[in-house]
Nucleic acid binder design. Structure first.
Lengths: 202, 202
DNA sequence: GATCGAAGTCAACTGTCGTTGACTGAACCG
DNA sequence: CGGTTCAGTCAACGACAGTTGACTTCGATC
């Protein structure tokens, strides 16, 4: 029996180097914009080895999302001020042209890539919307999804499209506005236009 | 002197048919996903003629954005309830699998495409952020950009990623939540954490 | 009726991409 | 020492993209 994927290294220094390079690329460019040859060059290996090590470009991307992005980190070690915490996290490591990769960077650069979108959706729903939805004062997947959409939208406008009014640094008006807005989404009345207890989603 | 672009039709029934086909494609797929050959087939012409008619794929895309999307329509014929109006517009023509193309469809499907992003940014800033920023009760480009980011994020989550909690129809909880959230963004205090008149952006 | 330019087609080029199969060299093992 | 295995390379394939130049078709014009 030929071994299907032949020799595919599970973990090795070289493999890690490739993954790091992939994360760095995917955090700055879209899925389609990023070629395996670019990643290979960054990691100083042959293209073929990149492919071999991860099975396919799509699997490499999935692993890059999993490895680096970690939307779940958005929710981690949060105390009581969820809104302020999330607003702050949105700026994490995306001030300036920082070296570090922000929690949303990979995702927001590849939202419209069809090969990537399944992976991205799973991460967003599983690692963000669902846990956050359960933790809100008024638990709701809808509220959590809207908060996610807001953070993603801000990320895209800021870091992908580079829309000027949003380029200001952490701690400024934007962060404040985000915090109060997230708080609003978390508790604003749903339903037609009244606060009615029976108007709950799900 | 050879004529540079040879014969490039400025306006013709065929050209219009091509443009319509392009809009339809770009409203459902990303920039890179959409091939000139697809568009050509939809319009029943040769690929070469598509290219010839618009100069390049990028120029065709730009024209498609201009022709169909019209974010500016988001702001048109609005009376006094700007928030409710914008929240409603976000659902326009994207209920169900409608035939019609929504105002944001083209844009949200190609946000991460580098060739498209310049075009997209110009439209967003010029046709949405700036006019809306001036028309807010407390005029501010920052507030307008955040509202734009929210609408774009919702559009992406709903129509590109198809994230379930956001798939509900117009008139429901989502529309209400959007309306009050937009209102909040339009007037929430900026600055550190107090309502201080001097804490204004720009 | 010959000419001309526009509308539209055809076939091909060039480049890049992900992917693959065969190969090399060193470490390991009996 | 001889063979196996694994890390990594090399060259190429096949598909498909946007683009280009030469060609055909055809209605209008002199």
């Amino acid at each position: 029996m030929r071994r299907a994927a032949a020799t595919r290294p599970r973990a090795s220094p070289t493999r890690d180097r490739i993954l790091e390079a992939a994360v760095r690329r995917f955090a700055r460019q879209s899925y389609e914009e990023t070629g395996l040859r670019d990643i290979a060059a960054d990691a100083s290996v042959d293209v073929a080895y990149v492919h071999r090590s991860f099975g396919s470009k799509e699997m490499l991307f999935a692993e890059a999302v999993r490895a680096s992005t970690g939307i779940d980190r958005l929710l981690a070690d949060e105390k009581q001020d969820m809104s302020g915490h999330l607003a702050g996290q949105a700026f994490r490591a995306d001030d300036q042209a920082s070296e570090e990769t922000g929690p949303l960077d990979v995702i927001i650069h590849s939202l419209s890539s069809p090969a990537a979108s399944r992976v991205v959706r799973e991460r967003i729903v599983g690692d963000f919307v669902e846990p956050l939805g359960a933790r809100l004062d008024d638990p709701s997947l809808l509220r959590a999804a809207v908060i996610g959409a807001l953070l993603a939208g801000i990320g895209i406008f800021r870091n992908v499209l580079e829309i000027e009014p949003l380029r200001e640094a952490a701690g400024g008006n934007l962060e404040t506005l985000l915090a109060t807005t997230i708080a609003h989404i978390g508790m604003a009345p749903l339903g037609a236009k009244q606060i009615t207890p029976e108007s709950q989603d799900q």
